[in-house]
Design a binder for these strands. Structure first.
Length: 931
RNA sequence: GCCCGAUUGGUGGAAUUGGUAGACACGCUAGGCUUAGAACCUAGUGCCUAACCGCGUGGGGGUUCGAGUCCCUCAUCGGGCACCA
């Protein structure tokens, strides 16, 4: 695609055929900056509206056309809300800690702070060129000590808090209150050593240190959270991940599982994201049951099940290989077999285990459990398919009614019984929750749901089990062995972790000579010299993970300069929840869950007044790139046109090479440009296609520098202007849909803006038209009001691609009518200004208005207008439209019916048949059903 | 395997509660203006037809006076989860 039209400057020198967009853009961007047009303060006299974009990570590649998509949409909404009289908070900042800057630092020695700053400046210039209405005075940068001061402070708050599960309280409380409780209840408490006390409290703190099996990525040299891993590999970089036991900082997110789940019902989010979060939290209701062990009265095997009703179908037990009591359960005669089995398990990576689901690997331990009701002996197995990290790490296996248990039973020759009446399990397990129980002692004859509650009651009565809710959600691992992150404000005194006093924050990230881990495997921060406390105490060298900085940034925007606290309560109260949050769905279970958790916690502390941070969420779709390929024959090194590959043995005989999309137009390669691209292509030989041209292959892929399919907003803006770019991005398709970028349609919106401009300009200069004092005609009003109705109904749901169409329809209609009513055009421009702000400001100012488009409230824009005084009804006869007729819009359906029946035309069409039924759709259609 | 979401002209995509399918834009065709091109203007453009008729929203079935829209079913594509007891 060509970005430069070769004789553009020449064109402009003669009669310009497009409006001088760059001049206007510079003028108005300067105006907005100098007048601080978009800076806001709390104003009790106006309703507030908080519209937030997910802030970007400032990467070295700069912005491509996909990045601003959501920002343009939110900017349109923000500008519209201002027009409607709202006090709009629309901030922007940078999520500036992260792995790419650190990797770059490792390679080049360049301090990540420097590269990050350069990247931010580039982003800022690109964003400014698009004409956004951000309040940059509120910019938040996560790697700025002024900001991470408060991230660290919240961490300390988490450390100093515990979660009170008492149903009457059900919130986080200061840990000192728990200490008081222990002092009162446990007479031994004051005799414990300080270390013992610390260890006990560690089990309650919301930020805690514990040894846990973590996802360790050897290549990155750090642990990763579950949402940072996909298919056993790191999301960033795709390196293998293994399980490793390590001491790590965690956040006790599980304490909030129930609240995070319930909160989902009170927010307006896409169903897909709600489903993902619900699934991620993974609530299961069931029972925990203690099974006695045959010949070992001291030991109990605790299991969790969601189907306690199937207890009479339990024919064996399975424990995870890593189960805490595994050693006690393995009998001497089975020891060798179990050891062999464990050896095989250990050699397997997480990935191998996942790929091996169907194998049903396992081994008998030699021990037996006692059935709590039947008192029969049940063999205990160790099985690969039972996870140590979920529930109790042990299950009661009911092969008749669970597929996995069934598979295991078949493989190991174990008994399979059905406990549902008339259900045959000889071929396959039945997981149905419908049915009547049989073979089940006191549960016989009950439907499943009743049996569940009855058996739980019985278990509780016998004190061998309790009803229990289990969550899939895990606590978040909060330490990373990396440099470029927030330091965790902790040091160790006599082995006891202590937080750095809040008045000494921020704990500033120190400089280091290298950004790699030390030779002894300690995190890079261990290289720091003369860091705070470092000379006196061992200090925490892990930093916080990438998601830490984004957990509360939206609160900071409300009060970005506050030195004392994250956000002042009165400001948090004024701005309240984020009314509209726009961003990609890739954060569905990461950032959006972590930040909800922080928000609930800060609510518990009384620092903010809303549990849920984001009232409405919208996921914009990704803009994809269309990559182009050339095909190099493996044997000869010749480049063969895509349409002739089959003549040379098909794609398999070729190396597919990404070629810069700038060299390709309509899939035809510009051979000269390609040859000049790189030295290795200088002497390339080509075998051309049927039309004597080299045809390239193509594929829709993520837009990426390495695929050479990137379109840069700067290039597009220099050719078509920011307003056409903005409108076109919105016009491209539904905002939530992923779509490939193409330049095919941008001419359309660009032409439209130029037509509007031409309507006003004479001899190259904008002139104030001679306004007519006559009242607007019905046609003019209809064109405007149709537009108003469309804008007001679609803006709230960001159905904005069709809004662009509506502007074109209304604008062209008004031009066709040669509308000379100032009032009509003013309203038209106000409505268009969120999409094309520079253009509208300029026209507006030449219409005798001073300065920027007035953001005063235009109440008429909020009223619902009658689109027209008459509605055209289509009169249809057994489903087919026969003729149309106009009735007043307000006319009641029954009156319409009567009129239609009485019409001459109707009797003509009915041809003497009886009217059985008349269906009136107000304003649209009258359907006559005849017999 | 489970849970979501999609499927409409040559292309991107429009179509409140079921109510004239294909808005708007691109592209294409013809004409105008130009020495020529660019730009601009006018008209046409779902498919099949010379035209009328007919057929048309992934396939099949259903409900309805009426279905892109609701129900059942199948197919294809995309996203998420995945031994979670």
């Amino acid at each position: 695609m060509e970005h430069q039209s070769p004789n553009q400057s020449q064109k402009e020198a003669q009669t310009p055929n497009h409006y001088p967009f760059s001049k206007w853009e510079q003028k108005w961007q300067k105006f907005w900056k100098e007048n601080k047009t978009f800076e806001v303060t709390e104003d009790k006299n106006k309703p507030k509206y908080y519209i937030l974009d997910m802030f970007p990570y400032p990467s070295g590649a700069g912005l491509h056309v996909g990045h601003p998509l959501g920002y343009i949409a939110s900017d349109v909404l923000a500008r519209t809300k201002r027009l409607q009289g709202y006090n709009v908070l629309h901030p922007m900042g940078y999520d500036a800690f992260g792995l790419p800057a650190e990797q770059y630092a490792i390679q080049t020695g360049q301090h990540p702070a420097i590269t990050t700053k350069e990247n931010r400046e580039r982003y800022r210039a690109q964003l400014d060129a698009i004409g956004f209405s951000f309040d940059w005075s509120r910019e938040v940068v996560t790697c700025d000590p002024e900001y991470y001061h408060h991230t660290q402070s919240v961490f300390i708050d988490l450390f100093e808090s515990w979660y009170d599960n008492d149903p009457k309280v059900n919130k986080a409380r200061p840990i000192v209150e728990l200490v008081k409780r222990f002092e009162a209840q446990d007479l031994n408490w004051k005799n414990y050593s300080e270390k013992e006390k610390s260890d006990i409290l560690m089990n309650y703190r919301l930020a805690y240190l514990s040894e846990a099996s973590v996802n360790w990525c050897p290549h990155l040299g750090t642990v990763l959270a579950n949402d940072e891993i996909q298919d056993g590999r790191s999301v960033r970089g795709g390196h293998p991940v293994e399980q490793k036991k390590m001491w790590q900082w965690h956040l006790r997110m599980t304490a909030y599982a129930e609240r995070l789940l319930n909160g989902l019902t009170e927010i307006d989010w896409p169903q897909a994201v709600i489903d993902m979060q619900r699934n991620w939290i993974g609530k299961s209701v069931g029972a925990e049951i203690d099974f006695a062990i045959d010949g070992n009265a001291a030991l109990k095997l605790k299991i969790f099940t969601t189907r306690p009703d199937t207890i009479f179908g339990c024919t064996f037990m399975v424990i995870a290989p890593e189960h805490t009591n595994a050693k006690d359960l393995v009998k001497a005669e089975q020891q060798k077999a179990v050891d062999d089995f464990l050896l095989i398990m250990k050699s397997k990576t997480e990935r191998d285990r996942q790929e091996n689901i169907m194998a049903a690997q396992g081994i008998f331990t030699g021990s037996y459990a006692i059935h709590p009701f039947l008192k029969t002996k049940i063999p205990i197995y160790m099985g690969e398919y039972v996870l140590a990290t979920y529930g109790t790490g042990a299950i009661m296996a009911v092969p008749g009614h669970d597929e996995r248990d069934y598979r295991f039973a078949k493989k190991h020759g174990l008994k399979i019984v059905s406990i549902l009446k008339d259900v045959d399990v000889s071929e396959v397990a039945s997981e149905s929750k419908e049915g009547i129980l049989s073979n089940s002692d006191f549960l016989n004859g009950l439907p499943v749901s009743e049996a569940i509650s009855k058996v739980i009651a019985k278990l509780e009565e016998l004190k061998v089990g309790v009803g229990k809710t289990q969550f899939r959600l895990r606590d978040a691992i909060f330490g990373r062995q990396r440099y470029w992150g927030e330091p965790i404000p902790v040091y160790f005194e006599n082995g006891i972790p202590k937080t750095i006093p809040k008045d000494e924050l921020p704990l500033v990230l120190p400089d280091v000579d290298k950004y790699l881990p030390t030779s002894t495997g300690e995190p890079p921060l261990a290289r720091a010299k003369n860091w705070k406390y470092q000379d006196k105490f061992p200090i925490e060298y892990s930093t916080m993970p990438g998601f830490a900085g984004s957990c509360a940034y939206f609160l900071r925007y409300m009060d970005p300069k506050n030195k004392n606290t994250l956000v002042d309560k009165s400001k948090a109260d004024y701005w309240g929840q984020v009314d509209f949050y726009l961003g990609g769905s890739e954060h569905a279970t990461g950032h959006l869950l972590y930040s909800r958790f922080w928000n609930h916690f800060l609510f518990d502390l009384g620092k903010i007044s809303h549990r849920e941070p984001f009232k409405k969420l919208f996921n914009q779709g990704m803009i994809l790139g269309r990559s182009q390929f050339v095909y190099r024959q493996v044997d000869s090194g010749k480049y063969v046109s895509f349409d002739r590959l089959k003549d040379f043995g098909g794609e398999g005989k070729f190396t597919k090479i990404h070629v810069d999309v700038k060299f390709v137009k309509n899939d035809i390669l510009d051979i000269e440009k390609f040859k000049n691209w790189r030295e290795e292509y200088n002497s390339a030989e080509f075998i051309l296609g049927d039309h004597g041209q080299y045809v390239c292959g193509s594929a829709i892929e993520k837009m990426s520098k390495s695929f050479y399919n990137v379109f840069n907003p700067d290039d597009i803006i220099s050719e078509y202007g920011a307003d056409a770019f903005r409108m076109y991005e919105m016009f491209l398709g539904p905002l939530e849909q992923a779509k490939p970028w193409n330049m095919n349609g941008i001419e359309g919106v660009f032409r439209f803006l130029n037509k509007l401009w031409r309507f006003w300009h004479q001899d190259g200069e904008l002139t104030t038209p001679k306004w007519s004092s006559a009242p607007a005609t019905e046609e003019e009003l209809k064109a405007l009001h149709t537009l108003i109705k469309k804008c007001m109904s679609d803006i709230e749901i960001l159905s904005i691609n069709t809004m662009v169409s509506s502007f074109m329809i209304a604008g062209q209609e008004l031009m066709k009518l040669e509308c000379d009513k100032k009032d009509i055009w003013e309203k038209f421009l106000i409505l268009l200004s969120p999409f094309a702000p520079h253009f509208c400001e300029e026209i507006w100012s030449t219409m005798g208005k001073v300065g920027s488009i007035s953001f005063a409230k235009f109440p008429e824009l909020n009223e619902s207008f009658l689109v027209s005084k008459v509605s055209t009804y289509a009169i249809s006869f057994n489903g087919k439209t026969r003729f149309t007729v106009d009735f007043p819009t307000e006319m009641a359906a029954t009156d319409v019916e009567a009129k239609v029946k009485a019409m001459d035309q109707t009797t003509k069409w009915c041809e003497g048949k009886n009217i059985v039924k008349v269906i009136v759709v107000p304003g649209k259609i009258v359907n006559l059903v005849l017999k």
